[in-house]
């Protein structure tokens, strides 16, 4: 049995750790709330964009835009949205599992990596990196994702990218985050992404809209916005997932630490009592021995 002093040291360490994890849990909780609110706040924008797209779809042939047509040249590309920091449980692990699966399906596929964890992972496995972005702030603004949107739309239009997908952790609830893969380009036509509204012919299409300048120019712009918005939305989801995963991980860590402390405390008390008992024994035997001598 380790001595009382050693146990005391261990208790102190465990307590310190639990203090740190508790603090980290609290920080993540507040960041999580903010990230969730932000993810919710962008919904009206997304809805407005989709409505506008369907209005446009009713007036002109949308199939002509390069974003909607697939071509054969170029490579497949996936954008992996991971975190910059660790200590968030199995979040990144799940993400990387799907990344490997994706890579198996697309042998020549290239990756655009977001977050230090993804970069480290890709380097370890020798994956083909096209670009990497790290150190995103906790509050993501649209200006931060613009470079990524620019890269993908440019490379897609000059046919060096065949398709672009995003792989990220979708925020379902604080306890559940799931890997989600979105096909970003060419824009899918029949999926639940809300984009389906484009192929459906609007029943209200009899309404004559005036377009300024031309419908084609507006469509071009609108699709660019749509691209950015989809990207932005997945970033927000990923952030919300990250913070909630970290919060849960830290909560588990603090729970484990306090369990450890109570276990050690028990052990410490036992060993202290054992010490007292043996000391008492020593004293009594000594006293008895003296009495016998007298």
């Amino acid at each position: 049995m380790s001595s009382a002093r050693q146990i005391k040291q261990k208790i102190k360490t465990a307590k310190n750790i639990s203090k740190i994890t508790k603090a980290m849990e609290m920080v993540s909780a507040s960041k999580m709330r903010r990230a969730q609110n932000q993810a919710l706040a962008t919904r009206p924008y997304t809805r407005a964009l989709q409505e506008s797209l369907s209005t446009l779809a009713s007036t002109i042939k949308t199939n002509l835009h390069p974003f909607l047509v697939s071509h054969s040249g170029g490579v497949d590309v996936a954008i992996i949205i991971s975190t910059d920091r660790g200590l968030c449980g199995g979040l990144n692990l799940n993400l990387f599992k799907s990344t490997i699966e994706w890579q198996k399906k697309h042998k020549n596929g290239k990756l655009i990596l977001i977050g230090k964890k993804a970069v480290a992972f890709a380097k370890m496995y020798g994956l083909n990196i096209h670009a990497q972005f790290t150190d995103f702030p906790d509050i993501i603004r649209t200006s931060e994702i613009l470079p990524i949107a620019t890269i993908i739309s440019k490379e897609y239009l000059n046919e060096s990218f065949k398709s672009v997908s995003i792989i990220y952790m979708d925020f379902i609830s604080t306890l559940v985050q799931r890997v989600k893969t979105i096909n970003l380009l060419p824009l899918p036509k029949n999926e639940e992404s809300g984009y389906s509204s484009l192929v459906l012919v609007d029943t209200k299409s009899k309404i004559e809209y005036i377009f300024e300048p031309s419908p084609e120019a507006i469509l071009d712009d609108l699709l660019n916005y749509y691209l950015e918005n989809t990207l932005y939305q997945s970033f927000l989801e990923a952030k919300a997932s990250e913070h909630s995963a970290r919060m849960v991980a830290m909560k588990n860590a603090s729970d484990n630490a306090s369990e450890l402390v109570s276990e050690l405390q028990l052990q410490f008390n036992k060993s202290r009592q054992a010490g007292i008992t043996s000391e008492l024994l020593d004293i009594t035997t000594a006293v008895l021995a003296q009495k016998l001598e007298n």
Binding site: A41, P44, A48, R141, E228
Partner: peptide
Amino acid sequence: LTVVTQEEQLLKTKVDQITAPTVE
């Protein structure tokens, strides 16, 4: 009138007149 930005819905209100700067 509804004004939405990428980050939030800024405004939703009943108005009498709107003047906006378009490209034209």
